[in-house]
Nucleic acid binder design. Structure first.
Lengths: 189, 189
DNA sequence: CTTTTTCATTGACTTGAGTTAAGAAATAAC
DNA sequence: GTTATTTCTTAACTCAAGTCAATGAAAAAG
């Protein structure tokens, strides 16, 4: 299970066996049932997450309507805006499947940094990556029609389409489930 | 003119007069005429910018169509994605007005960091701020209709509406100029 | 296995944005 | 100040997404 974490970190840094075992000691891993809310609107996020198994999605509730902004799966870190800004969260984080998650906190991070100082340098890099992908996400949304967005999703992460109910995919694409149904029908021809 | 820079930096750090004068010495300031392209699609961004005066916008060209993603005005830093990723830019940066801009580069940043080491700590913070605002931008786009987006813009940055031609505002909102015209008419009632 | 609930599809209709084209208004150029 | 160019508005029409409602399919609960 730890391999999932090390695999993620290997993109940024080569860890020694010693360092890996320090990380293994310090990590906090928990399981959550499908439907569990990891973060609610109005709450302060005191934790950040790394998905070992399962799937999580973030959404706003706008006038009673769910507006999905992102899906997260294995090997992805989730740093809630509220975790960095220390302000109340405006969105929800919910488990879409039964999940196994590694949980981070400011204290635990500080502790680990002390023992593996090399990890500190990695912070800004991960930030940069997240900023870049966030921009891409926005830019794609601006540039493409719902239909193109769906086709993009099909090509870039076909796994998500098999794993996630269509009404949530629709919301993520910025349309209603009925419209997604029609788009799918249109594409088949 | 330097005051614009110090004013921006004061959000993150209190500089001594000495430090300020070091910055003043090292900065590179240039003027550009309206219409100048600071970055083109396919180019590698070797510079980042800080606007002292004027207005810049970023846009994609999708099948001959301009898709505006952002407007930048005084006191705003612009770090092109291409500057951090070192890959060819996918979008353009263009001066919407005559501009006075402070220009940054990796080399010059490194030099300044050497003389004012305290500035280094500021990097991740600025990154975090940018990530947060980028996320907000995306989330607003997802959550709101074009009409609401326009009203938001009216409330949050009325200055932009007076400064920027409406057909670019329309593009920024994700609609055509004709639709924005109609929205404005609808709102007036 | 059966029932219940949730999710996906379809159809008829409404609504708002896109398109095309024309003309008015505002800016820039001379 | 006049002309030329760019920008904004309006109108008629098309089209895709929203809405409402019904039905069918799939998944969860019993």
């Amino acid at each position: 299970m730890d391999e999932v974490i090390f695999d993620f970190l290997s993109k940024y840094i080569d860890l020694t066996e010693e360092e890996k075992s320090i990380l293994s000691e310090h990590k906090l891993i928990r399981s959550f049932k499908k439907g569990t809310l990891l973060l609610k609107e109005g709450e302060l996020a005191k934790e950040c997450f790394f998905i070992l198994k399962g799937c999580i999605y973030s959404y706003y509730l706008v006038e009673g309507e769910v507006k999905v902004t992102e899906f997260f799966v294995e090997k992805q870190p989730i740093t809630p805006v509220s975790y960095t800004t220390k302000k109340e969260s405006e969105y929800y984080l919910e488990c879409l499947e039964d999940c196994i998650i590694s949980i981070g906190s400011q204290e635990r991070s500080a502790e680990i940094m002390k023992k593996v100082p090399r990890l500190a340098a990695l912070g800004p890099t991960v930030l940069e990556d997240e900023l870049a992908s966030q921009r891409m996400k926005y830019d794609n949304f601006i540039k493409l029609t719902p239909e193109k967005r769906y086709q993009n999703l099909q090509n870039q992460s076909p796994d998500l389409l098999n794993r996630i109910p269509q009404y949530l995919i629709a919301s993520y694409l910025g349309i209603k489930p009925e419209s997604l149904s029609r788009i799918r029908k249109r594409i088949l021809k």
